[in-house]
């Protein structure tokens, strides 16, 4: 069971749809949306709950469009 849970928030207006964040996500959380932003780019979006907040996507994003959140899940004690 994962002990951390991450979330990404993509600034959809800033995203230019370069897709560099897709291959670096080991959890396969990021996919390009079918929708367009006002500049006409398909923006990146989070598609599942597997994100662990590793920040790889935010590090390679040239436009700084991704904010990464991470929380530690509390371990439940046995007994």
């Amino acid at each position: 069971m994962a002990t951390v849970k991450g979330e990404i928030v993509v600034n959809t207006e800033r995203c230019k749809g370069c897709e560099l964040c897709v291959p670096v996500c080991k959890e396969k959380t990021i996919k390009m949306s079918g929708n367009l932003n006002s500049k006409g780019y398909h923006f990146a979006t989070s598609i599942n709950d597997d994100c662990n907040g590793c920040t790889n996507c935010a590090l390679v994003c040239p436009d700084g469009a991704i904010t990464v959140y991470r929380v530690k899940l509390k371990e439940e004690k046995v007994n």
Binding site: G6, E7, A58, T67, Y69, R70
Partner: peptide, 10 residues
Amino acid sequence: IIADHDNVVY
């Protein structure tokens, strides 16, 4: 998770 700014790692 995203409501709390303390959770931001990047």
